[in-house]
Nucleic acid binder design. Structure first.
Ligand code: MN
Ligand code: MN
Ligand code: MN
Ligand code: MN
Lengths: 221, 221
DNA sequence: CCAATAATTTAGATTTGTCTAAATTTTGAT
DNA sequence: ATCAAAATTTAGACAAATCTAAATTATTGG
Protein backbone atom coordinates (compact mmCIF):
# COMPACT_ATOMS: atom_id res chain seq x y z
CA UNK A 1 0.00 0.00 0.00
CA UNK A 2 2.82 2.41 -0.70
CA UNK A 3 2.85 5.24 -3.21
CA UNK A 4 5.68 6.52 -5.40
CA UNK A 5 6.92 10.08 -5.00
CA UNK A 6 5.08 11.06 -8.18
CA UNK A 7 1.85 9.50 -6.95
CA UNK A 8 2.20 11.27 -3.61
CA UNK A 9 2.63 14.61 -5.32
CA UNK A 10 -0.59 14.03 -7.24
CA UNK A 11 -2.46 12.95 -4.11
CA UNK A 12 -1.36 16.06 -2.28
CA UNK A 13 -2.23 18.32 -5.22
CA UNK A 14 -5.70 16.81 -5.52
CA UNK A 15 -6.25 17.23 -1.79
CA UNK A 16 -5.32 20.88 -1.91
CA UNK A 17 -7.55 21.63 -4.89
CA UNK A 18 -10.47 19.72 -3.45
CA UNK A 19 -10.99 22.09 -0.53
CA UNK A 20 -14.52 23.11 -1.55
CA UNK A 21 -16.23 19.82 -2.41
CA UNK A 22 -16.01 20.43 -6.15
CA UNK A 23 -14.42 18.01 -8.56
CA UNK A 24 -10.77 18.67 -9.31
CA UNK A 25 -10.09 19.19 -13.01
CA UNK A 26 -7.35 17.76 -15.15
CA UNK A 27 -6.16 21.22 -16.15
CA UNK A 28 -5.99 22.46 -12.57
CA UNK A 29 -3.82 19.48 -11.67
CA UNK A 30 -1.61 19.89 -14.70
CA UNK A 31 -1.04 23.50 -13.72
CA UNK A 32 -0.37 22.72 -10.06
CA UNK A 33 2.06 19.94 -10.90
CA UNK A 34 3.68 21.56 -13.92
CA UNK A 35 2.91 18.60 -16.13
CA UNK A 36 0.80 18.27 -19.24
CA UNK A 37 -2.92 17.40 -19.06
CA UNK A 38 -2.26 14.11 -20.87
CA UNK A 39 0.14 13.06 -18.11
CA UNK A 40 -2.49 13.87 -15.51
CA UNK A 41 -5.05 11.69 -17.24
CA UNK A 42 -2.60 8.79 -17.24
CA UNK A 43 -1.86 9.15 -13.55
CA UNK A 44 -5.52 9.53 -12.60
CA UNK A 45 -6.26 6.21 -14.25
CA UNK A 46 -3.47 4.59 -12.29
CA UNK A 47 -4.60 6.09 -8.99
CA UNK A 48 -8.17 5.06 -9.70
CA UNK A 49 -6.92 1.49 -10.05
CA UNK A 50 -5.43 1.85 -6.59
CA UNK A 51 -8.87 2.75 -5.27
CA UNK A 52 -8.01 6.02 -3.62
CA UNK A 53 -10.15 8.32 -5.72
CA UNK A 54 -13.28 8.64 -7.83
CA UNK A 55 -12.42 9.57 -11.36
CA UNK A 56 -15.08 10.30 -13.94
CA UNK A 57 -13.50 10.87 -17.34
CA UNK A 58 -14.10 14.43 -18.52
CA UNK A 59 -15.65 15.38 -15.18
CA UNK A 60 -12.71 15.45 -12.82
CA UNK A 61 -11.67 13.62 -9.72
CA UNK A 62 -12.09 13.48 -5.94
CA UNK A 63 -10.11 11.64 -3.31
CA UNK A 64 -12.12 9.07 -1.36
CA UNK A 65 -11.67 8.58 2.40
CA UNK A 66 -8.56 6.47 1.90
CA UNK A 67 -7.06 9.00 -0.46
CA UNK A 68 -7.71 11.85 1.95
CA UNK A 69 -6.06 9.96 4.76
CA UNK A 70 -3.03 9.31 2.55
CA UNK A 71 -2.88 13.01 1.65
CA UNK A 72 -2.99 14.08 5.27
CA UNK A 73 -0.11 11.81 6.20
CA UNK A 74 2.00 13.20 3.34
CA UNK A 75 1.15 16.74 4.44
CA UNK A 76 2.06 15.77 7.99
CA UNK A 77 5.51 14.70 6.87
CA UNK A 78 5.92 17.79 4.70
CA UNK A 79 5.07 20.23 7.47
CA UNK A 80 7.05 18.46 10.16
CA UNK A 81 10.14 18.63 7.96
CA UNK A 82 9.44 22.29 7.22
CA UNK A 83 9.27 22.92 10.93
CA UNK A 84 12.54 21.06 11.48
CA UNK A 85 14.29 22.99 8.73
CA UNK A 86 13.11 26.37 10.00
CA UNK A 87 13.35 25.76 13.71
CA UNK A 88 16.47 23.61 14.00
CA UNK A 89 18.46 24.33 10.86
CA UNK A 90 17.48 28.02 10.78
CA UNK A 91 16.36 28.01 7.19
CA UNK A 92 14.28 30.94 6.05
CA UNK A 93 10.64 30.52 5.33
CA UNK A 94 11.00 30.54 1.59
CA UNK A 95 13.68 27.86 1.49
CA UNK A 96 11.93 25.11 3.43
CA UNK A 97 9.26 24.18 0.93
CA UNK A 98 11.39 22.70 -1.87
CA UNK A 99 13.40 20.62 0.58
CA UNK A 100 10.27 19.36 2.36
CA UNK A 101 8.90 18.51 -1.07
CA UNK A 102 11.56 15.80 -1.20
CA UNK A 103 11.76 14.81 2.45
CA UNK A 104 8.00 14.20 2.60
CA UNK A 105 8.37 11.12 0.38
CA UNK A 106 10.30 9.13 2.93
CA UNK A 107 7.43 7.14 4.32
CA UNK A 108 8.47 5.69 7.64
CA UNK A 109 5.93 6.13 10.44
CA UNK A 110 8.71 5.49 12.92
CA UNK A 111 10.78 8.33 11.47
CA UNK A 112 7.85 10.71 11.22
CA UNK A 113 6.66 10.11 14.74
CA UNK A 114 10.10 10.35 16.30
CA UNK A 115 10.69 13.57 14.42
CA UNK A 116 7.35 14.85 15.70
CA UNK A 117 8.31 14.01 19.28
CA UNK A 118 11.78 15.50 18.88
CA UNK A 119 10.28 18.75 17.65
CA UNK A 120 7.86 18.84 20.59
CA UNK A 121 4.68 18.03 18.65
CA UNK A 122 4.45 21.37 16.84
CA UNK A 123 0.95 22.47 15.83
CA UNK A 124 1.79 24.74 12.91
CA UNK A 125 4.47 24.85 10.27
CA UNK A 126 6.62 27.89 9.47
CA UNK A 127 3.96 29.24 7.11
CA UNK A 128 1.29 29.02 9.80
CA UNK A 129 -0.39 25.95 8.33
CA UNK A 130 -1.62 23.28 10.74
CA UNK A 131 0.29 20.00 11.06
CA UNK A 132 -1.86 16.84 10.98
CA UNK A 133 -1.33 14.58 13.99
CA UNK A 134 -0.31 10.92 13.93
CA UNK A 135 -3.85 9.91 12.93
CA UNK A 136 -3.97 12.43 10.12
CA UNK A 137 -6.28 14.75 12.01
CA UNK A 138 -5.80 18.46 11.52
CA UNK A 139 -7.23 21.18 13.75
CA UNK A 140 -9.70 23.29 11.77
CA UNK A 141 -8.42 26.81 12.10
CA UNK A 142 -10.67 29.58 10.95
CA UNK A 143 -8.40 32.22 9.56
CA UNK A 144 -9.35 35.20 7.50
CA UNK A 145 -7.40 37.61 5.38
CA UNK A 146 -6.21 40.65 7.29
CA UNK A 147 -7.78 42.71 4.48
CA UNK A 148 -11.20 41.49 5.62
CA UNK A 149 -10.66 41.76 9.36
CA UNK A 150 -12.50 44.16 11.66
CA UNK A 151 -11.10 47.52 12.82
CA UNK A 152 -9.71 47.90 16.33
CA UNK A 153 -9.93 44.19 17.13
CA UNK A 154 -6.66 42.56 18.20
CA UNK A 155 -5.70 39.59 16.00
CA UNK A 156 -2.90 37.07 15.74
CA UNK A 157 -0.99 36.69 12.51
CA UNK A 158 -1.50 33.01 11.76
CA UNK A 159 -0.43 32.36 8.23
CA UNK A 160 0.13 33.53 4.69
CA UNK A 161 -1.56 32.78 1.39
CA UNK A 162 1.64 33.02 -0.59
CA UNK A 163 4.95 31.49 0.34
CA UNK A 164 7.22 33.43 -1.97
CA UNK A 165 10.52 34.93 -0.96
CA UNK A 166 9.16 38.30 -2.12
CA UNK A 167 6.42 38.20 0.49
CA UNK A 168 8.90 36.97 3.07
CA UNK A 169 11.21 39.87 2.31
CA UNK A 170 8.41 42.35 2.80
CA UNK A 171 7.14 40.76 6.02
CA UNK A 172 10.66 40.68 7.44
CA UNK A 173 11.11 44.34 6.63
CA UNK A 174 7.85 45.24 8.35
CA UNK A 175 8.75 42.91 11.25
CA UNK A 176 5.55 40.90 10.83
CA UNK A 177 5.97 37.32 11.99
CA UNK A 178 3.58 34.45 12.48
CA UNK A 179 2.23 34.60 16.01
CA UNK A 180 2.55 38.38 16.28
CA UNK A 181 -0.36 40.40 17.64
CA UNK A 182 -1.72 42.95 15.23
CA UNK A 183 -4.56 45.44 15.11
CA UNK A 184 -6.05 47.48 12.28
CA UNK A 185 -6.27 51.14 13.26
CA UNK A 186 -7.55 52.56 9.97
CA UNK A 187 -8.69 51.33 6.60
CA UNK A 188 -8.50 53.73 3.65
CA UNK A 189 -11.27 53.26 1.16
CA UNK A 190 -9.36 54.85 -1.69
CA UNK A 191 -6.81 52.07 -2.14
CA UNK A 192 -7.77 49.57 0.54
CA UNK A 193 -4.53 50.21 2.40
CA UNK A 194 -4.41 49.68 6.17
CA UNK A 195 -2.71 51.38 9.04
CA UNK A 196 -1.87 48.77 11.63
CA UNK A 197 -0.19 48.43 14.96
CA UNK A 198 2.14 45.54 15.71
CA UNK A 199 2.77 44.92 19.43
CA UNK A 200 3.57 48.44 20.66
CA UNK A 201 5.59 49.60 17.69
CA UNK A 202 4.76 52.77 15.78
CA UNK A 203 1.91 52.52 13.26
CA UNK A 204 2.80 51.15 9.84
CA UNK A 205 1.03 51.01 6.50
CA UNK A 206 0.19 47.86 4.54
CA UNK A 207 -1.02 47.74 0.96
CA UNK A 208 -4.34 46.13 0.20
CA UNK A 209 -2.60 43.37 -1.73
CA UNK A 210 -0.28 42.59 1.16
CA UNK A 211 -3.23 42.52 3.57
CA UNK A 212 -5.00 40.02 1.32
CA UNK A 213 -2.06 37.66 1.71
CA UNK A 214 -1.79 37.79 5.48
CA UNK A 215 -4.09 35.45 7.42
CA UNK A 216 -5.18 36.30 10.96
CA UNK A 217 -7.45 34.95 13.63
CA UNK A 218 -9.03 36.81 16.56
CA UNK A 219 -6.80 37.12 19.61
CA UNK A 220 -8.07 34.88 22.41
CA UNK A 221 -8.48 36.96 25.53
CA UNK B 1 25.58 17.43 -13.05
CA UNK B 2 23.06 15.67 -10.84
CA UNK B 3 22.62 11.97 -10.37
CA UNK B 4 19.45 9.96 -9.86
CA UNK B 5 18.98 7.95 -6.68
CA UNK B 6 19.75 4.75 -8.60
CA UNK B 7 22.92 6.24 -10.04
CA UNK B 8 24.01 7.42 -6.61
CA UNK B 9 23.54 3.95 -5.18
CA UNK B 10 25.77 2.54 -7.91
CA UNK B 11 28.40 5.22 -7.35
CA UNK B 12 28.49 4.47 -3.65
CA UNK B 13 28.63 0.73 -4.22
CA UNK B 14 31.51 1.06 -6.68
CA UNK B 15 33.36 3.30 -4.25
CA UNK B 16 33.03 0.80 -1.45
CA UNK B 17 34.19 -2.13 -3.56
CA UNK B 18 37.09 -0.20 -5.02
CA UNK B 19 38.95 0.10 -1.73
CA UNK B 20 42.01 -1.83 -2.89
CA UNK B 21 42.76 -0.36 -6.31
CA UNK B 22 41.40 -3.40 -8.16
CA UNK B 23 38.69 -3.17 -10.80
CA UNK B 24 35.17 -3.64 -9.51
CA UNK B 25 33.37 -6.49 -11.24
CA UNK B 26 29.84 -6.61 -12.60
CA UNK B 27 28.96 -9.54 -10.40
CA UNK B 28 30.22 -7.88 -7.22
CA UNK B 29 28.05 -4.86 -7.98
CA UNK B 30 25.04 -6.94 -8.80
CA UNK B 31 25.42 -8.71 -5.47
CA UNK B 32 25.93 -5.49 -3.51
CA UNK B 33 22.96 -3.79 -5.10
CA UNK B 34 20.67 -6.81 -5.29
CA UNK B 35 20.18 -6.41 -9.00
CA UNK B 36 20.98 -8.69 -11.93
CA UNK B 37 24.34 -8.47 -13.73
CA UNK B 38 22.59 -7.36 -16.92
CA UNK B 39 21.17 -4.34 -15.11
CA UNK B 40 24.61 -3.45 -13.84
CA UNK B 41 26.05 -3.52 -17.34
CA UNK B 42 23.33 -1.12 -18.51
CA UNK B 43 23.98 1.31 -15.68
CA UNK B 44 27.76 1.18 -16.12
CA UNK B 45 27.33 2.24 -19.73
CA UNK B 46 25.18 5.16 -18.65
CA UNK B 47 27.63 6.25 -15.95
CA UNK B 48 30.51 5.95 -18.38
CA UNK B 49 28.67 8.38 -20.65
CA UNK B 50 28.56 10.77 -17.71
CA UNK B 51 32.35 10.57 -17.48
CA UNK B 52 32.63 9.59 -13.85
CA UNK B 53 34.23 6.19 -14.30
CA UNK B 54 36.43 4.05 -16.48
CA UNK B 55 34.56 1.04 -17.73
CA UNK B 56 36.24 -1.66 -19.75
CA UNK B 57 33.69 -4.20 -20.95
CA UNK B 58 34.39 -7.62 -19.42
CA UNK B 59 37.12 -6.15 -17.21
CA UNK B 60 35.23 -4.11 -14.67
CA UNK B 61 35.08 -0.55 -13.62
CA UNK B 62 36.75 2.15 -11.52
CA UNK B 63 35.56 5.58 -10.46
CA UNK B 64 37.68 8.43 -11.75
CA UNK B 65 38.49 11.47 -9.60
CA UNK B 66 35.14 13.07 -10.27
CA UNK B 67 33.31 9.85 -9.45
CA UNK B 68 35.19 9.47 -6.20
CA UNK B 69 34.34 13.00 -5.18
CA UNK B 70 30.68 12.35 -5.97
CA UNK B 71 30.80 9.16 -3.89
CA UNK B 72 32.29 10.94 -0.91
CA UNK B 73 29.62 13.60 -0.92
CA UNK B 74 26.89 10.94 -0.99
CA UNK B 75 28.60 9.12 1.87
CA UNK B 76 28.83 12.42 3.72
CA UNK B 77 25.09 12.89 3.47
CA UNK B 78 24.43 9.28 4.44
CA UNK B 79 26.54 9.40 7.57
CA UNK B 80 25.38 12.83 8.69
CA UNK B 81 21.77 11.62 8.51
CA UNK B 82 22.72 8.45 10.39
CA UNK B 83 24.25 10.60 13.08
CA UNK B 84 21.14 12.77 13.24
CA UNK B 85 18.84 9.77 13.48
CA UNK B 86 20.88 8.13 16.24
CA UNK B 87 21.84 11.19 18.22
CA UNK B 88 18.75 13.36 17.96
CA UNK B 89 15.92 10.97 17.20
CA UNK B 90 17.36 8.19 19.40
CA UNK B 91 17.16 5.49 16.78
CA UNK B 92 19.10 2.33 17.42
CA UNK B 93 22.13 1.59 15.41
CA UNK B 94 20.53 -1.02 13.23
CA UNK B 95 17.61 1.20 12.19
CA UNK B 96 19.52 4.20 10.87
CA UNK B 97 20.99 2.69 7.74
CA UNK B 98 17.82 2.05 5.69
CA UNK B 99 16.51 5.54 6.45
CA UNK B 100 19.83 7.19 5.60
CA UNK B 101 19.79 5.17 2.39
CA UNK B 102 16.87 7.35 1.31
CA UNK B 103 17.80 10.65 2.96
CA UNK B 104 21.23 10.62 1.32
CA UNK B 105 19.67 11.24 -2.08
CA UNK B 106 18.45 14.71 -1.23
CA UNK B 107 21.28 16.63 -2.76
CA UNK B 108 21.26 20.15 -1.35
CA UNK B 109 24.64 21.43 -0.19
CA UNK B 110 22.83 24.04 1.88
CA UNK B 111 20.84 21.35 3.68
CA UNK B 112 23.82 19.08 4.18
CA UNK B 113 26.05 21.80 5.53
CA UNK B 114 23.44 23.24 7.87
CA UNK B 115 22.74 19.76 9.17
CA UNK B 116 26.46 19.28 9.70
CA UNK B 117 26.68 22.52 11.67
CA UNK B 118 23.54 21.72 13.66
CA UNK B 119 25.01 18.37 14.65
CA UNK B 120 28.27 20.02 15.72
CA UNK B 121 30.44 18.74 12.84
CA UNK B 122 30.52 15.11 13.98
CA UNK B 123 33.57 13.11 12.94
CA UNK B 124 32.14 9.61 13.01
CA UNK B 125 28.75 8.07 12.35
CA UNK B 126 26.93 5.70 14.75
CA UNK B 127 28.80 2.71 13.31
CA UNK B 128 32.15 4.36 13.90
CA UNK B 129 32.74 5.22 10.25
CA UNK B 130 34.32 8.59 9.44
CA UNK B 131 32.17 11.37 7.99
CA UNK B 132 33.66 13.20 4.98
CA UNK B 133 33.87 16.97 5.43
CA UNK B 134 32.36 19.62 3.19
CA UNK B 135 35.12 19.09 0.65
CA UNK B 136 34.64 15.34 0.63
CA UNK B 137 37.78 14.72 2.63
CA UNK B 138 37.74 11.86 5.07
CA UNK B 139 40.22 11.30 7.91
CA UNK B 140 42.14 8.08 7.29
CA UNK B 141 41.59 6.07 10.41
CA UNK B 142 43.70 3.00 10.89
CA UNK B 143 41.51 0.54 12.68
CA UNK B 144 42.15 -3.13 13.14
CA UNK B 145 39.95 -6.02 14.19
CA UNK B 146 39.97 -6.62 17.93
CA UNK B 147 40.74 -10.24 17.10
CA UNK B 148 44.13 -9.12 15.78
CA UNK B 149 44.96 -6.58 18.48
CA UNK B 150 47.80 -6.93 20.98
CA UNK B 151 47.40 -8.25 24.52
CA UNK B 152 47.37 -5.85 27.45
CA UNK B 153 47.31 -2.74 25.27
CA UNK B 154 44.43 -0.37 25.93
CA UNK B 155 42.33 0.30 22.81
CA UNK B 156 39.28 2.30 21.84
CA UNK B 157 36.34 0.57 20.20
CA UNK B 158 36.00 2.53 17.00
CA UNK B 159 33.70 0.67 14.68
CA UNK B 160 32.13 -2.55 13.51
CA UNK B 161 32.45 -4.60 10.34
CA UNK B 162 28.83 -5.65 10.37
CA UNK B 163 25.84 -3.44 11.02
CA UNK B 164 23.24 -6.09 11.71
CA UNK B 165 20.75 -5.93 14.54
CA UNK B 166 22.12 -9.28 15.71
CA UNK B 167 25.56 -7.79 16.33
CA UNK B 168 23.96 -4.74 17.94
CA UNK B 169 22.00 -6.96 20.30
CA UNK B 170 25.13 -8.78 21.35
CA UNK B 171 27.17 -5.59 21.81
CA UNK B 172 24.38 -4.02 23.85
CA UNK B 173 24.24 -7.09 26.06
CA UNK B 174 27.97 -6.98 26.63
CA UNK B 175 27.79 -3.18 27.13
CA UNK B 176 30.32 -2.56 24.37
CA UNK B 177 29.80 0.82 22.70
CA UNK B 178 31.75 2.80 20.18
CA UNK B 179 34.24 4.96 22.04
CA UNK B 180 34.59 2.57 24.96
CA UNK B 181 38.07 1.68 26.23
CA UNK B 182 38.86 -1.99 26.04
CA UNK B 183 41.84 -4.24 26.74
CA UNK B 184 42.51 -7.85 25.89
CA UNK B 185 43.61 -9.75 28.98
CA UNK B 186 43.87 -13.24 27.50
CA UNK B 187 43.58 -14.92 24.14
CA UNK B 188 42.76 -18.63 24.05
CA UNK B 189 44.40 -20.47 21.22
CA UNK B 190 41.89 -23.30 21.20
CA UNK B 191 38.96 -21.29 19.85
CA UNK B 192 40.40 -17.80 19.45
CA UNK B 193 38.13 -16.47 22.18
CA UNK B 194 39.24 -13.43 24.18
CA UNK B 195 38.92 -12.37 27.76
CA UNK B 196 38.62 -8.60 27.83
CA UNK B 197 38.17 -5.77 30.23
CA UNK B 198 35.86 -2.87 29.49
CA UNK B 199 36.45 0.22 31.61
CA UNK B 200 36.64 -1.23 35.14
CA UNK B 201 33.89 -3.81 34.75
CA UNK B 202 34.50 -7.49 35.51
CA UNK B 203 36.24 -9.52 32.79
CA UNK B 204 34.01 -10.82 30.00
CA UNK B 205 34.51 -13.31 27.20
CA UNK B 206 34.15 -12.62 23.48
CA UNK B 207 34.03 -15.24 20.75
CA UNK B 208 36.61 -15.14 18.00
CA UNK B 209 33.91 -14.30 15.45
CA UNK B 210 32.67 -11.41 17.52
CA UNK B 211 36.21 -10.08 17.95
CA UNK B 212 36.70 -10.18 14.19
CA UNK B 213 33.76 -7.84 13.77
CA UNK B 214 34.83 -5.23 16.30
CA UNK B 215 37.27 -2.59 15.09
CA UNK B 216 39.64 -0.87 17.51
CA UNK B 217 42.46 1.61 17.48
CA UNK B 218 45.21 2.13 20.04
CA UNK B 219 44.25 4.38 22.94
CA UNK B 220 46.06 7.72 22.67
CA UNK B 221 47.79 8.46 25.95
C1' DC C 1 46.32 -25.52 -25.55
C1' DC C 2 41.64 -26.41 -25.26
C1' DA C 3 37.20 -27.37 -23.63
C1' DA C 4 34.10 -26.59 -19.87
C1' DT C 5 32.58 -23.25 -16.84
C1' DA C 6 32.07 -18.77 -15.08
C1' DA C 7 31.45 -13.99 -15.99
C1' DT C 8 29.63 -10.63 -18.74
C1' DT C 9 27.09 -8.49 -22.38
C1' DT C 10 23.29 -8.25 -25.71
C1' DA C 11 18.55 -8.61 -27.12
C1' DG C 12 14.10 -7.97 -26.13
C1' DA C 13 10.48 -7.03 -22.77
C1' DT C 14 8.17 -4.44 -18.82
C1' DT C 15 6.82 -0.60 -15.62
C1' DT C 16 6.66 4.20 -14.43
C1' DG C 17 6.16 8.68 -15.69
C1' DT C 18 6.49 11.88 -18.90
C1' DC C 19 5.80 14.20 -23.61
C1' DT C 20 3.47 15.82 -28.41
C1' DA C 21 -0.04 15.54 -31.67
C1' DA C 22 -4.47 14.05 -32.87
C1' DA C 23 -9.13 12.75 -31.66
C1' DT C 24 -13.00 13.27 -28.75
C1' DT C 25 -16.12 15.34 -25.51
C1' DT C 26 -18.01 19.17 -23.04
C1' DT C 27 -19.22 23.94 -22.64
C1' DG C 28 -20.88 28.36 -23.83
C1' DA C 29 -22.30 31.96 -26.92
C1' DT C 30 -25.25 33.15 -30.29
C1' DA D 1 -30.19 24.09 -30.92
C1' DT D 2 -25.84 24.65 -33.09
C1' DC D 3 -21.25 25.19 -33.52
C1' DA D 4 -16.72 27.05 -32.25
C1' DA D 5 -13.67 27.01 -28.45
C1' DA D 6 -11.96 24.85 -24.45
C1' DA D 7 -11.03 20.82 -21.89
C1' DT D 8 -9.90 16.25 -21.86
C1' DT D 9 -8.57 11.81 -23.49
C1' DT D 10 -6.22 8.68 -26.71
C1' DA D 11 -2.40 7.19 -29.46
C1' DG D 12 2.17 6.72 -29.96
C1' DA D 13 6.80 7.81 -28.49
C1' DC D 14 10.66 8.11 -25.19
C1' DA D 15 14.00 7.73 -21.10
C1' DA D 16 15.14 5.38 -16.83
C1' DA D 17 15.68 1.27 -14.53
C1' DT D 18 14.82 -3.09 -14.18
C1' DC D 19 14.15 -8.18 -15.66
C1' DT D 20 14.86 -13.03 -18.35
C1' DA D 21 16.95 -15.64 -21.82
C1' DA D 22 20.39 -16.05 -25.19
C1' DA D 23 24.88 -14.96 -26.99
C1' DT D 24 29.55 -13.79 -26.22
C1' DT D 25 33.97 -13.48 -23.92
C1' DA D 26 37.31 -14.75 -20.29
C1' DT D 27 39.34 -18.08 -17.23
C1' DT D 28 41.16 -22.27 -15.77
C1' DG D 29 42.07 -27.18 -14.95
C1' DG D 30 43.67 -31.04 -17.22
MN1 MN E 1 6.97 16.16 -3.06
MN1 MN F 1 4.25 25.00 4.73
MN1 MN G 1 20.56 5.10 -1.16
MN1 MN H 1 27.08 4.05 8.93
Amino acid sequence: MGFSAAEENYIKAIWKLQKDNTNVTTNALSEALKTKPASVTDMLKRLKDKNILNYLPYYGVQLNAEGQQAALLIIRRHRLWEYFLAEKLKFDWDAVHPLAEELEHINSPELTNRLDAYLGYPQIDPHGDPIPNIKGQMPVTTRIALADYALNQPAVVSGVLNQSSELLELLKHKKITIGATIEICRRFEFDGSLEIQLQDLPLITLSSYLAQNILVKPLQL
